[in-house]
Design a protein around this nucleic acid. Structure first.
Length: 731
DNA sequence: TTTGCTTATCTTTTT
DNA sequence: GATAAGCAAA
């Protein structure tokens, strides 16, 4: 798509600022050309002779970064693709590979993705017998999100629990202990989770003026997209990397902040001018995407927000039609309606990839998926379950991980459990013995005991050993693992193994872009493959969660399941802050449409346990004045009227609004915190011989301060270790 | 110790 | 409808 220069430069302010230096904040509404502004600036700078690799462009997804650079290249020349950056996480990862030793990690650290973190927390929780007994305990997902919130908000775990998980207040001591165990384990095994990537890099920037200088020198211009979705760590990082030059350009929209659940704070965008003195603020308030009737409606949605936002959009396009509203009799009727409408639009000549269906949670589209299947309409689904979370993918990856690091406890256990008649107990035992061995894989390949599964274990060990020694290309290695795994796959997933096998082949294909398994695994964690990554999504309708729709647009957009109990999410109903975020989410969803916008909700929804229940329209839908929507008549059988009419039947949606269960437990007495820090007096001296759980034996070569020592490992080289974290002992 | 069966629980959103 | 915990039997 060619970029329309006149459009870009419709404000003189913008034109002026594109040439100048210093901090700039672009506050821009939906469809106002935020991304274009960045693209244009990159192109302009490179066109003016700025070295592209000195421009740092930080975005939210890697795909967004790529797309922007390609667009910039079309205006500013091919050199634009050399611009540095990507996602915050991948950028931090690159920096840490270089500087991790400054934070006490070896450069060969391993990245944990969300599910790795959950698995680890689960394991540790079981070990300390917090998880597993009859008592009610937080799910591993809840625990991980507690730990993450604690890190991102910079507050203690006790406050996180009190504020966001009051139902678990009585278990605070165990939760605190578990958090400490989690932190210790990560440090001792050179593991980093998503938060660590950001945090450790920030720490290095803070503690090392020389690194900070080097970075500030190499990046003359720093640009950040979707600034409303950054957290305070990211904001601070940007500040430090900008150095004295303060050439930072941030672009965002405070009314589109939808990621606070993972630490984003849209106050960042409001505080930007305070952080950077002399910030020029540009507001883009013209909307080039939607038509005025659609915009009137989306403006009405956001107008009800508690917090007043900084701008109101005016459409630049003429004509158009107000959003349609369809009240389906139930979810299957909703699916049929959407499928039929999609068919109509396709018939009218709209390309499939110009049509999207958006919903709050991944499972809301299940019925639609079957309906589309019946009508033969092809689709891709974005959001929800990721490929890398599927059991068979994890199985294969665990084999690869064991090959790289035979002491990776979670992976070795997972791999061993694949074997017949080998259960958790035996796996633990084998692992315990492997740790003590000098060559764990060889040990595995000669494993001896009286159990029936011994030959299988040996076979597995031998295969892993052979592949790790063969020195083949990565795809060959993956193929070798796959051949070993295939019989197990077929046995275990008798009904759908062909599909799973195909996905494994896809994984193998992806690995061919890498020389190194470590790099491959890191990328899988940071940039998990999406179904729509390749050209495959051409010619297919898009089904997407509202979150995954951010930054995208389509000609035709359906927003479905807008019923209380579905949207806003019942999980968010208890807290006004979260409800406000749901409203912004609705705003994001509705502003994705260029021409045709549909809202749908089923008059009856299936609630877990309760069966079919009458549903009211979402509160956000009810807030929209009637004249801004155009109802569509449904089938005769369905109740078509909008509004509270549907709530009259007995046992209506009131059940959804009962007091949240935790209120009751929250009242319970709270026990004092008893999280204790581990004693700090380590007493190491120069020349001490020590042993580290991962790096093996070494000699202390330098005492840096009371917290850190430098160790010369016999095998693993020189490392700086934090005594607080590292698991080392004198020998 | 493993497995297979039953039952409960619960389902946001994602780098 | 998927996943995990609980329990009984091999």
């Amino acid at each position: 798509m060619e970029i329309d220069f006149k459009r870009e430069l419709n404000t003189q302010q913008l034109e002026a600022v594109l040439h100048t230096e210093g901090p700039v904040l672009v506050i821009a509404g939906a469809g106002s050309g935020k991304t274009r502004t960045l693209v244009y600036r990159v192109a302009r700078l490179v066109g003016m002779g700025v070295d592209p690799s000195s421009i740092l462009l930080l975005t939210f997804t890697r795909k967004a970064a790529q797309e922007m650079l390609e667009r910039a290249a079309r205006i500013g020349g091919d050199a634009c693709v050399q611009v540095a950056g990507g996602t915050f996480h991948s950028f931090c990862h690159r920096m840490l590979r270089r500087y991790a030793h400054l934070a006490g990690y070896p450069p060969g650290f391993t990245i944990m993705d969300q599910s790795d973190s959950q698995d680890l927390v689960h394991l540790l929780g079981r070990q300390m017998e917090f998880i597993g007994k009859g008592k009610k305990f937080p799910s591993k997902a809840a625990l991980v999100s507690m730990f993450s919130k604690s890190v991102n908000a910079g507050i203690g775990i006790d406050q996180v629990v009190e504020r966001h998980f009051p139902q678990f207040t009585d278990q605070l001591p165990s939760i605190g202990q578990l958090q400490q165990a989690y932190i210790n384990y990560k440090a001792a095994h050179a593991l980093m989770d998503y938060d660590d990537l950001l945090l450790k890099w920030l720490m290095i920037l803070k503690d090392n003026p020389d690194v900070r200088e080097t970075i500030a020198d190499s990046y003359q211009y720093v640009m950040v997209d979707e600034y409303q979705d950054t957290n305070s760590t990211q904001a601070e990082m940007v500040y430090l990397m900008a150095g004295d030059r303060q050439n930072v350009m941030a672009v965002g929209d405070d009314s589109q902040s939808i990621y606070s659940f993972r630490g984003a704070d849209f106050n960042n965008i409001l505080e930007f001018p305070k952080m950077f003195q002399g910030t020029r603020i540009i507001k883009l308030e013209r909307n080039y995407r939607s038509t005025q009737p659609n915009l009137d409606c989306t403006n009405a949605i956001i107008a009800n927000a508690r917090q007043k936002f900084t701008k109101k959009l005016v459409a630049q396009r003429k004509g158009g039609h107000p959003p349609w509203l369809y009240v389906a009799s139930d979810e299957s009727d909703q699916a049929k309606f959407v499928a039929a409408r999609i068919r109509k639009h396709l018939h009218d000549g709209i390309e499939p990839e110009e049509i999207a269906v958006l919903f709050r949670a991944a499972f809301h589209s299940f019925q639609l998926e079957t309906a589309l299947g019946h009508t033969g309409i092809q689709f891709v689904k974005r959001g929800g379950m990721r490929l890398v979370d599927a059991a068979h993918i994890k199985d294969l990856l665990s084999l690869l991980k064991v090959m790289i690091n035979p002491l990776d406890r979670l992976s070795i256990t997972r791999a061993l459990l694949l074997l017949d008649r080998l259960g958790p107990k035996s796996a633990e035992k084998i692992y315990a013995e492997m740790i003590r061995s000098d060559a764990p894989l060889e040990y595995l390949s000669r494993f001896n005991s009286r159990a029936a599964w011994v030959p299988k274990v040996r076979e597995m060990g031998a295969r892993l050993l052979e592949l790790s020694r063969c020195g083949g290309e990565l795809p060959e290695i993956v193929d070798g693992l796959l051949q070993w795994y295939r019989p197990l796959l077929e046995k275990h997933y008798t009904d759908d193994y062909p599909k799973r096998l195909q996905e494994l082949m896809q994984l193998k294909a992806m690995s061919s872009d890498y020389d190194d398994a470590v790099e491959f695994l890191a990328d899988l964690a940071l940039d998990p493959p999406e179904p729509g990554d390749e050209q495959e999504n051409q010619g297919k309708v898009v089904l997407s969660t509202m979150h995954s729709a951010k930054g995208l647009e389509w000609k035709v957009v359906f927003v479905i399941s807008l019923a209380e109990g579905r949207f806003p999410s019942p999980m968010a109903a208890a807290r006004t802050e979260e409800l406000e975020e749901e409203r912004r989410l609705f705003y994001v969803a509705a502003t994705r449409a260029r021409d045709h916008l549909y809202f749908c909700y089923p008059a009856f929804i299936n609630m877990q346990g309760a069966g079919l229940m009458p549903a009211r329209p979402s509160r956000f839908l009810q807030e929209i004045p009637d004249n801004l929507l155009e109802p569509i008549k449904g089938r005769p059988a369905s109740s078509q009227s909008r509004g509270p009419v549907n709530t009259q039947p007995v046992g209506n949606a009131e059940g959804l609004e009962g007091p949240p269960a935790y209120r009751r437990t929250a009242e319970k007495e709270r026990r004092g915190r008893s999280v204790e820090r581990s004693a700090g007096a380590a007493g190491f001296r120069d020349g001490d011989r020590i042993r580290h759980s991962i790096f093996g034996k070494g000699t202390v070569s330098k005492i840096i301060d009371s917290n850190r020592v430098e160790v010369e490992f016999d095998a693993a080289g020189r490392k700086v270790l934090h005594l607080q974290y590292a698991n080392i002992a004198k020998i």
